[in-house]
Nucleic acid binder design. Structure first.
Length: 942
DNA sequence: CTAACGGCG
DNA sequence: CCTTCGCCGTTAG
């Protein structure tokens, strides 16, 4: 049982030290003697966290040795390509060992064996006794193969507390396998660049998983290559030996001759004097305090001040649920719910919060609904004996579709879940997350944080609810966190929601609804004070359900065309790789800009004075390499390789992974207030950067298709919206005239800048003017323009001067905007959306200029964002009110994309165009203009 | 984790 | 010395 099980922690010393070093590579910690102590510090943090919070009974740290290992015998190149260990890091390892000695923690080393093998062997032995719960503490994914019901992987997170625990179900789901031993098969195909394990060429993580899912093991795959086709077949067949060799290399030993016994690993008392002395030497004063409180006297040098800096933490006491008399009640019968709904229907303002089993709205199941319309009073509605989940929703439906304002936190999630269950909640909505994003965009917006910072209140943590509930800690990927948070936070404290008893969840859920209700009132006030009520109530709030619908609809992608493009690209990548290796005279990792730079500029000496990045690496970006293309054939090949591999990895391989199995569509996530300017952002997958500029890229765009026979893709995009906005908010008459006469703005600008008639403007003149027009929006310098146009700087400066002479109000607008920003510290868009520019008065000229450019750009980009958001609200309204079958399915900054029903097109197109053009009337009667396109795929729709 | 790169508007 | 805004995803180290 849990209380008698021995808890064995096996730490992968080298890997943890390595990781700690690189985690702090940008902000290394030095002691007063100039020693980089990042790695030691990071390692100690992890160790102390385990000792303090995770009750180990046995603990040991394994290290590699310098001796060659059996892996080197069968494969001399094993780990041959590793860069030499940084000096700082090399020095850290003996320090870590000294500390471990002081802690009386065994360092386990075995000449000729790696730390992996030691850990594998000990974990295996521990499993055999049946007495241990073993934790392999390592950041290295390879250890997944060793996970068993009694041995889990423990991956330290960024902060000490954020830990990723991987047990068998977690490994199986993460690796998409049926048995943990198949991790080895996947790694064998995939290979490992850092250990120089070859794998099979052309097979990466995804293909490896797919093949092992299909065939079960490397051996079975090799027997059945007749079932493969094309390039993949060839690759596998030609690399059978290599695959089997790789399999040997990635297999961690479980029978190494380790002499350490479990008795050696029993946790022992540390040598306090030795620890104190080492901490003092390393100047780990905070860690010293942590162990010894004020008994720890900081060492010499500057660090003596540390004890003065850290008195007992004086911290405002946070209130908790226990400090209030609350009225939180569980509602689980039809009669009770009927009574509750009667009350609810009288409210014109209430808060609701769904508790679900998962974070994907399309797969999430409803556990309950928390409701609150009065501070410290809330109800948690759950299914009961005479109340099925669907009946529960049915009874709540009138309230959720009423005219009352619905408050919630991250309502996009709740509304998506409801929509997936066929319930379209109606506004107005008040989303506290959105409100806070407008009021205080720099801060985090999760509810726990808002409760602490705005109400001085600390909320119940889901993990505690689960613990109290004595539910077995589960690592299922189900939790309540929002999508946005999911990716950014380490998977911690995964909670199997359905294992929590309703009674336990009640306080948690009610508290959320209660707190959110209270936050809304404060935030409404703050919106008002910051002048952003209009943008909140007129734009962001009504946009919210529109985004929910767009995400819900999704977009169709033709999987087969992507597969075909993938084959073509793979072939091209392979041929180019061959040529490049030949031209370079050696093989290297083409995906590494570092290695590529060293080849081109270090070895091949392509130019005398190569450009460098700010970190001192050779620059190898497209604009740098393009200039070098004439010098050597290799450059063109590299550029082509870059293009092909970008397209393959980012689009062709990734998009199919996002196709939803139940409806065959891709449902992107649209983030409403993530950007500084008010634009939307798209992720998982990002559908706002689907290729269009290059020929090869456009093939990918063709794979986006209508949802059915009777539909077509229809795109409606604003023409030159940002320049129109700039003309309008600057009030520049010349530019306004150009738009009012519907002139081509770049031609009109060229005519003015070059002093010729519109009909005398050449292609080159127009293209230069176009560059200047866009450059101006971004605050370009003469230098920047000269680079882009490939002209001398003086000439560029002249063009810019003439531009401002011709459009004087634009110059004025730019100066005034910066002046305003300097004075107020922020700029605004036409709708009142605010962006704070902290750096606008920086003493550092470069930083200050950057902020200045953002100051100019924000009102322009942000107002354009306001406009299309308003258009989306309008268009959504007209589609729904008119009962059309056509659906809005995407926004790409200045474009709206629709699945248009063929029978509706003649009627709808003019209405959509009209809605877009009139969504936000610009000052000075500058007209907005929308162009349209239609076709059987997204490319044709333009 | 950050940097470099490159896809889009 | 730096030098064009706003994003997201992939890869390497």
């Amino acid at each position: 049982m849990a209380d008698t099980t021995k808890r064995l922690f096996l730490l992968d010393g080298m890997a943890l030290v390595y990781r700690a070093h690189f985690a702090l590579i940008r902000n290394p910690i030095y002691n007063s003697k100039g020693m980089n102590t990042s790695a030691v510090f990071g390692f100690m943090n992890t160790l102390l966290d385990i000792l303090d919070n995770h009750s180990p009974t046995h603990l040991g740290v394994a290290f590699d040795t310098k001796e060659p290992t059996p892996r080197h015998e069968i494969f001399p190149e094993y780990k041959a390509q590793r860069d030499a260990m940084p000096e700082d890091l090399a020095k850290a390892i003996p320090e870590v060992k000294r500390l471990l000695k002081a802690f009386h923690i065994p360092v386990i080393e075995l000449p000729g064996y790696e730390a992996d093998d030691i850990i594998g062997t000990l974990a295996h032995q521990a499993d055999a006794t049946g007495e241990y719960q073993t934790f392999m503490v390592t950041p290295d994914k390879d250890f997944a193969q060793l996970v068993t019901p009694t041995t889990t992987m423990w991956k330290p997170g960024r902060k000490g507390s954020e830990v990723e625990l991987m047990d068998v179900p977690a490994i199986l789901s993460k690796w998409e396998i049926e048995d943990t031993s198949q991790v080895i098969d996947i790694l064998a195909l995939w290979g490992d660049a850092s250990d120089n394990i070859p794998g099979v060429p052309g097979i990466g993580e995804k293909t490896a998983k797919k093949l092992i899912k299909q065939f079960g093991s490397v051996e079975k795959l090799l027997e059945s290559t007749d079932q493969l086709k094309g390039k993949q077949k060839e690759n596998v067949e030609n690399n059978k030996e290599q695959a089997l060799l790789s399999k040997k290399l990635v297999t961690i030993m479980v029978d190494a001759p380790v002499s350490t016994t479990f008795k050696d690993l029993v946790l022992d008392q540390r040598d306090d004097e030795a620890v104190k002395s080492l901490f003092t030497e390393l100047e780990f004063n905070a860690l010293g305090k942590r162990l010894y409180g004020n008994d720890f006297t900081a060492g010499r040098g500057h660090s003596t001040t540390a004890s003065a800096e850290q008195p007992e933490l004086v911290q405002a006491e946070l209130k908790t649920l226990a400090d209030f008399k609350t009225n939180y009640a569980l509602v689980n019968s039809a009669a009770e719910l009927d009574k509750l709904v009667k009350q609810l229907e009288k409210q014109d303002l209430f808060c609701f919060d769904l508790e679900t089993t998962a974070l994907n709205p399309r797969t999430a199941d409803l556990l309950g609904v928390a409701l609150s319309w009065k501070a410290r009073e809330a109800y948690f509605v759950i299914p009961g004996k005479d109340l099925s989940p669907s009946a529960m929703l049915e009874k709540l439906k009138p309230a959720l579709t009423s005219k009352a304002t619905k408050i919630g936190h991250n309502l996009k999630f709740d509304l998506s879940v409801l929509l997936a269950k066929g319930l379209q909640a109606t506004g107005p909505f008040f989303d506290t997350m959105l409100a806070h994003s407008l009021v205080d965009p720099e801060q985090r917006h999760n509810m726990d944080y808002l409760a602490e910072s705005m109400l001085g209140y600390t909320t119940i943590k889901l993990a505690d609810v689960a613990a109290e509930n004595e539910a077995e800690a589960s690592t299922q990927s189900d939790d309540l966190f929002s999508f946005a948070e999911k990716k950014k936070t380490t998977k911690k404290d995964y909670v199997d929601m359905s294992a929590i008893r309703a009674e336990s969840l009640k306080d948690y859920a009610c508290e959320d609804a209660d707190i959110t209700f209270q936050l809304a009132e404060i935030l409404a006030e703050q919106l008002d004070t910051s002048g952003q009520s209009d943008v909140f109530y007129d734009i962001e709030s009504p946009l919210l359900p529109v985004l929910v619908r767009i995400e819900h609809e999704g977009i169709c992608v033709n999987r087969d065309s992507l597969t075909e493009i993938g084959h073509t690209l793979a072939k091209r990548i392979e041929n180019l790789t061959k040529s490049i290796y030949e031209q370079a005279g050696k093989e290297f990792n083409l995906n590494s800009p570092k290695q590529l730079g060293e080849i081109l500029f270090g070895e091949m000496q392509l130019v005398e004075k190569p450009k460098k990045t700010k970190t001192g690496q050779f620059k190898t970006d497209e604009s740098t390499l393009s200039l070098l293309a004439p010098k050597h054939e290799i450059v063109a090949n590299i550029l082509e390789y870059r293009e092909a591999s970008k397209l393959k990895s980012t689009y062709v391989d990734a998009l199919p992974e996002h196709i939803c199995p139940s409806d065959g569509r891709i449902h992107t996530h649209l983030h409403q207030l993530l950007t500084a300017t008010g634009r939307l952002a798209s992720s998982d997958p990002n559908l706002q950067n689907i290729p269009v500029r290059s020929e090869a890229g456009r093939e990918i765009r063709k794979a986006f298709v209508p949802r059915g026979e009777e539909f077509t893709l229809f795109a409606c995009d604003y023409s030159q919206v940002e320049l129109r906005v700039m003309a309008a908010i600057s009030g520049d008459q010349a530019m306004i005239d150009a738009f009012q006469h519907d002139h081509d703005i770049h031609t009109a600008t060229a005519a003015r800048v070059y002093g010729v008639g519109m009909d005398e403007v050449t292609r080159d003149m127009r293209s230069t003017a176009k560059m200047v027009n866009f450059g101006i929006i971004y605050g370009i310098s003469a230098f920047g323009l000269s680079q882009r146009l490939g002209i001398p700087r003086g000439e560029a400066a002249e063009i810019i001067d003439t531009y401002f002479e011709q459009y004087p109000a634009i110059k004025e607008f730019m100066d005034k905007t910066i002046e305003q920003a300097e004075k107020d510290g922020y700029v605004t868009t036409l709708s009142g959306r605010k962006r704070v520019l902290r750096d606008i008065n920086s003493r550092n000229a470069s930083i200050r200029k950057n902020a200045g450019r953002a100051a100019i750009n924000t009102p322009i980009q942000g107002t354009a964002a306001d406009m299309i958001k308003l258009a989306m609200i309008k268009v959504d309204d007209l589609l729904r009110k008119g009962g059309y079958h056509s659906k809005m399915i995407l926004q790409v900054h200045d474009e709206l994309l629709f699945d248009l029903h063929l029978e509706e097109k003649d009627e709808l197109i003019p209405k959509i165009v009209e809605a877009m053009q009139t969504a936000l009337p610009l000052p000075h009667d500058v007209p907005a203009k929308a162009d349209t396109g239609m076709g059987g795929n997204w490319l044709q729709a333009h």
